[in-house]
Simulated assay, not measured.
Amino acid sequence: MLTRRPIPALAAFVDHLWYVDEPLPPGRDRTLPTGAAQLVVNLAADSLRWYDGERLDKPHSAAGAGLCAVLARPIGVDTADQAATVGLVFRPGGAAAFVDPPVAVLTDPVTGLDELWGRSGATLRERVLSAPTPQARLAVLEQVLLERLVGATGPVRVTGQARAIGSARPADPAHDSALSYAVRALDRGAAVASVVDRLGFSASTFQRRFRAAVGLSPKQFARVRRLQRVLPDATGDDVEWALLAAAHGYADQAHLIHEFRALTGVTPGRYRPRSVDAHNHVPLTDSSNHQLPGRAIMVT
């Protein structure tokens, strides 16, 4: 697995890029909400599959290059689709700079870039596949984002001038200082009401602006990000759940268990991630989360 930070022009919008090319067997995982959108390109096949429904067994698919929306619920994924993939993780609010409708209206877990970007989205996978090396494939993703960011009609050279243009869009949500502050504060565990008071917005204005940019309401985002702070400490047979609940601001152990199940679909006691490095991916089985034969990890 290859990961790296984005070029400076995209640093306000993109957290990191990743590339995987491994022989992975088929299987299905429960993927947990993270509070961030992703752009994913399946290099092995021109499709991205996911599953929803009560048992995460209702199949859906999109084109092989897609935008994975910000969700407050888990979905199922075919891990075989991730054997050869390239993609990037947006910062909260960062995807809004590249999507014409507000990201909050993207209710499907995955939307094909052909639907969002037309021809440029439909040809993205082909452009990525034509690049000769993993690093070059990551660079193609950055190139496409730059083209959309600066409004170019043709290829954009990644020069200092392009970077300067791309980093000077104050109207974009990623450069909105109020929303940036809200994201950071909620990510640290601040109460929504205290953030609203600090910013001086009405509650309805704050809700509307935050949801349009990030894709979740402030409360949903805060819940998901608190879950993300809990997950690294939620494995093993000796977890002190009451202490963990207190450490992360839950009212009590019962509150943590309720929130955990609401956001992941499993109780803390049945949470068995793929590995300590992949705590957002839980193998799906009929009655538990223990590993099945022939399973593979999806990139986060």
Rank of each mutant, 00 (worst) to 15 (best):
L2W: 11
I7W: 10
I7H: 10
P8C: 10
L17G: 00
L17Q: 02
L17I: 00
V20D: 15
L24M: 08
P25C: 03
P25M: 04
P26Q: 12
G27T: 05
R28I: 12
D29R: 15
R30A: 03
L32G: 05
L32K: 04
T34S: 08
A36S: 06
L39H: 04
A45P: 07
S47M: 13
S47W: 13
L48S: 09
Y51D: 02
G53K: 03
R55P: 14
D57E: 14
D57M: 10
K58M: 13
H60C: 07
G66A: 09
L67V: 05
A69S: 13
V70L: 05
A72Y: 09
A72R: 12
R73T: 06
P74R: 02
I75N: 04
D78V: 08
T79G: 11
L88G: 00
F90Y: 00
P92D: 03
A96M: 05
A96F: 03
A96T: 06
V99F: 01
D100Q: 14
V105M: 08
L106C: 01
T111W: 09
T111M: 08
G112A: 07
L113T: 05
D114T: 08
L116A: 00
R119H: 15
S120P: 10
A122H: 12
T123N: 11
E126K: 10
S130H: 11
A131K: 00
E142V: 06
Q143N: 11
V144S: 10
V150G: 03
G151R: 02
G160W: 09
Q161N: 13
A162T: 13
R163W: 15
A164Y: 10
S167F: 09
R169H: 15
P170F: 06
D176V: 11
L179W: 03
S180I: 14
S180L: 15
Y181N: 08
A182N: 07
L186G: 02
D187F: 09
V196N: 08
T205I: 10
Q207S: 14
R211W: 03
A213I: 07
G215C: 03
Q220C: 06
Q220P: 04
A222G: 01
A222K: 02
R226V: 01
R229E: 04
G236T: 06
D238I: 11
E240Q: 13
A242E: 12
L243Y: 12
L244G: 05
A246L: 07
H248E: 01
Y250R: 00
H255I: 01
R261I: 08
A262Y: 06
T267R: 14
P268N: 02
S275N: 07
A278I: 06
V282I: 10
N289V: 11
N289D: 15
H290I: 13
M298G: 14
V299Y: 04
T300Q: 09
